[in-house]
Structure formats: C-alpha cells, structure tokens
C-alpha cells in the first residue's frame, strides 16, 4: 500500500502541472465544438449550462479531495491550484451561459431571479465565494496574505461547493439521484475536514 502510494507520488512529481491546465480545458473545447456542429441535442442551451456547471462542481470537488488524500499519504498538492482555478473558470462560464444564452440578457428577469429564486441565489453565493479564491490563487497572493490567513480564506471553497451542490439539488424537478450524490460528496468532504482538523504548520 505504502509502496503503491510512493510510486504514485513519484509519478505525480514528474507530471508537469501544465498537463492538468491543458487537460482541464479539453471539455470546454469539446463543448464549443459540439455546440458549433449541433451535437448537443434538441436543447443545446440547457446542455451547455448543465455541462459547464457539472464540470465546475467536479473540479471544485477534485480540488477539495487533495487535502484528505494527503492525509492518507497521497501528495497531489501541486495540482490543486489548476483544479481550483479551472473550477472557477467553468462556474464563471456557467454563469455567463445562464445570463447570455438561457436568460437572453433579459436583465429585469435576471435581477428578479437574483433576489427571489433560492437556487439562483445559491448559485450566485457559490460563484461569489470562488471569486476571492481565484484572485488569490497566485504565489504572490499567498505570500502577501500569509499562509494561515490564506488557508482560512480558502475554506470558502467549502461554502462554494455546498452552495453549488444544493443549487443543483433544488433546481431539478423531483428528486433524481445525481444531484443528491454531489450533495453527499460535499457533505462527506466537509465531515472529513471537521473530524480531522487541518494542522497549521508554522
């Protein structure tokens, strides 16, 4: 087990982080191509919206898995920035798709939704929680804030994930399984962090 972990760790050290950045863009490029060539079914707008949101949530969850994985000896920390920033990219594009493609820039309806609709509000909470994280994703920002403060700020990732997962659960009609699975995953990750507090190194 330990041997296997060591092997994965040493393999991970040899993979340039650029691979993750480029790899994370592949779904987006595919989506643009699929939309341009009319491969997204009868309602491409909903498909675009759903895919972008889903990928954003998945990258966010992946970035939140890094710390629990480290606890069991798997060190993928160097990929976390790429995962987190790409999560923000997909969620920002998801928001843009909603405003431009879905709502057709009907600002009166958009603004009404933003203060009346719980699932829209939760989606916005998630996006806004990710904004300071994206802005402070650089080495320089970590230095400026100091590690402890930076880490505390970046606990907002849990707020974003929880908001995103609940947003998904309540926007669908009925209770399909998939959104509940994401909500369960966020809950499990949050519980893991609460039970095994992160040691702040000095």
């Amino acid at each position: 087990m330990v041997l296997a972990l060591d092997r994965i760790n040493s393999l991970a050290r040899r993979i340039p982080t650029g691979v993750v950045w480029v790899g994370a863009m592949i779904p987006f490029v595919w989506l643009v191509w699929a939309a341009a060539t009319n491969r997204l079914g009868a309602d491409p707008v909903k498909a675009i919206e759903l895919r972008l949101g889903l990928w954003g949530l998945q990258f966010l969850l992946a970035s939140l898995c890094i710390t629990p994985l480290r606890k069991i000896g798997l060190n993928l920390l160097r990929f976390r920035r790429a995962l987190g920033v790409m999560a923000f990219f997909y969620i920002a594009m998801h928001f843009l798709a909603w405003v431009v493609l879905d709502m057709g820039l009907r600002w009166d309806e958009i603004l009404r939704d933003l203060y009346k609709r719980p699932y829209i509000i939760l989606g916005m909470v998630g996006l806004l929680a990710m904004l300071p994280l994206a802005v402070t994703s650089t080495h320089a920002a970590i230095r400026r804030l100091g590690a402890a403060r930076w880490r505390r700020l970046h606990q907002l990732a849990y707020v974003a994930a929880a908001a995103g997962a609940i947003h998904f659960v309540i926007l669908v009609k009925g209770w399909p399984l998939e959104p509940l699975l994401y909500a369960g995953a966020v809950g499990a990750l949050l519980l893991l962090r609460l039970r095994v507090p992160h040691k702040v190194r000095t």
Partner: peptide, 21 residues
C-alpha cells in the same frame, strides 16, 4: 411564478443557441 423559477418567459426549443427567450 413557479415557486422556484419565473414563468414570465420561455425558451423555444430549436430556436438556436443565441435566440434568447
């Protein structure tokens, strides 16, 4: 309104990606 979304407008399926509402 539906309690969770507005019914003021609709998207016409097949109208195209940039057709709006």
């Amino acid at each position: 309104s539906h309690p969770r979304w507005s019914q003021a407008s609709e998207r016409r399926v097949g109208a195209g990606i940039f057709a709006g509402r």
